[in-house]
Design a protein around this nucleic acid. Sequence first.
DNA 1: TGTGAAATTGACACCGGTGACAACAGGCGT
DNA 2: ACGCCTGTTGTCACCGGTGTCAATTTCACA
Lengths: 304, 304
Amino acid sequence: MGRTSRKSEIDFVAAARRWTENNKDGRKPTIRDVAELAGVSKKTVSRVINNSPLVNAATRSGIQGLIRDIGYQPDPQARGLASKRSFLVGMISDNPTPQYVVNIQHGILDVLRKTGYELVVHPCDRKSDTFIEDARRFIEVQKLYGVILTPSVSEDERLAEVMRELGCAYVRIASIALDMERRMIVTNDRVGGREAARHLAKLGHKRIAVIVGRRSFRSSHERRAGFEEGLAEYGISLPTEYVLQGDYTFESGLALGSQILDLDPAPTAVFASNDEMAAGVLQALHVVGQTPPNSLSVVGFDDF
Amino acid sequence: MGRTSRKSEIDFVAAARRWTENNKDGRKPTIRDVAELAGVSKKTVSRVINNSPLVNAATRSGIQGLIRDIGYQPDPQARGLASKRSFLVGMISDNPTPQYVVNIQHGILDVLRKTGYELVVHPCDRKSDTFIEDARRFIEVQKLYGVILTPSVSEDERLAEVMRELGCAYVRIASIALDMERRMIVTNDRVGGREAARHLAKLGHKRIAVIVGRRSFRSSHERRAGFEEGLAEYGISLPTEYVLQGDYTFESGLALGSQILDLDPAPTAVFASNDEMAAGVLQALHVVGQTPPNSLSVVGFDDF
DNA sequence: TGTGAAATTGACACCGGTGACAACAGGCGT
DNA sequence: ACGCCTGTTGTCACCGGTGTCAATTTCACA
């Protein structure tokens, strides 16, 4: 293990060379190029891009290598158009202190970095009577994946309502500036859980484990409920042995991670109620030498 | 005149009503819906959206009304994918003072507002050795229409070189923060002129007038030269009677505007070397009761 | 009243991906 | 050997627009 079939490897490497040689004109490669070079269908490449578990490990790593070698970058516009979404996150604000805005922007971008998402800023005037309407169009037209609402607009319930209606993830930032403290309130626990479930199910996962927080945390409960709803939509059930309990810490994630690895049949995905625990699970995987999402997908909740 | 054919008007209005009635499910209209309702091809609607002069005035206004009535919004992703561009402008900066950044952001957004373009912020670390490479990918992958470079990164010649290579419009902002003054330097006069020419030519314009600045301004000369190059690409010539001379002021634009209207055959488009003059031309049009781009397209150079 | 140029419109493929679903290869129980 | 399930891959239509170029209409003018 740890090494994929020799034959495949060689093929892919040769393919990469072939590309660099034939591409004197510096055209950017598309998914079709990758597919043809790899001798597979576009769809398979697409699966690799999206980390679908429905791909043979050897095929996957070969294609991944090829992608790296020829420097292929999927086109966000095409992806978005086809899947009716976008890779943009918006930030709607109404004139808070600059220092504050910039801080938030950086915070968001730190999270977004390496995910391929980009941040679109959108100042506005909350007093304008077309405010809500404008925001709505902005979100709808750009098909924003999520939106950050900074103080002042974050307090607007009408806006929050719009977000829910559009099914757009959102984060309302509270705290009245000045202090650097950023308290974020994710208000849609249940929706978020459901989204996560859909996400995993769509990727083709059938066996999914869940790590919940302490029973006493209401949010944890909400998330799990939403998650089960989401799974149900895809006709996937959640066996009790797949539900583990943590306490929102990294350590508990770590412990539960190895526990999960011992499950039989092993789940192909794990849903952790928060990022700390998700990180713990990942760590556990590293320890045993596996790296997701090759063999196991891990989704943290807070994670944008 | 001033009123389009009665028959068309009625048809379009009826079409709008038909839509609102049949659309109980609140689906967002697409270009196809508009086309079918209007009884024209998608392409014609597309032309209206893009202000192409190749559309009959009556058809145009009818479709515009229909679009307003049913609240159609073209999808930027689809538009971008098909035309290999995007409706995004980037701002690359490396940690200048927050106050400054926010100011610039607002300034840019003021210009962008109502144009359908959005601003994507992209902080970076100029000292990173992948800096240039990262920026390049950012621009390339997002197919940015243009980029704003704030101080520090704006001084980086390598980056400017990349922008030129990618044919991406860019603005380098000079001045060392602190003072609110924003001095912008548009460095690609010639390229800009050429772009403007291509733009108009692609839209189908054949008769294009040009307003240049005083002979002594080098930049004006550069722009005009670039512009002619662009026209030449499309086999369009620039008769001397279509070249008028202004002095970069609103008033001169106004004067030349009416002068242009008297030309015979009248041009279908005007290229002004700066925005002041473009505004003047627009004003002249208003005076005689025409409004672009129905009868005349006006392009200002500085205008993003 | 024909005729060529200009004005207007449409047909159709394509941009670069994804969704839905069919197809096919093994492995396994009977 | 047969049916069935899991795992893996491919086919094909479609997302919502635009580019290209051909087709049609209009109109001035010979």
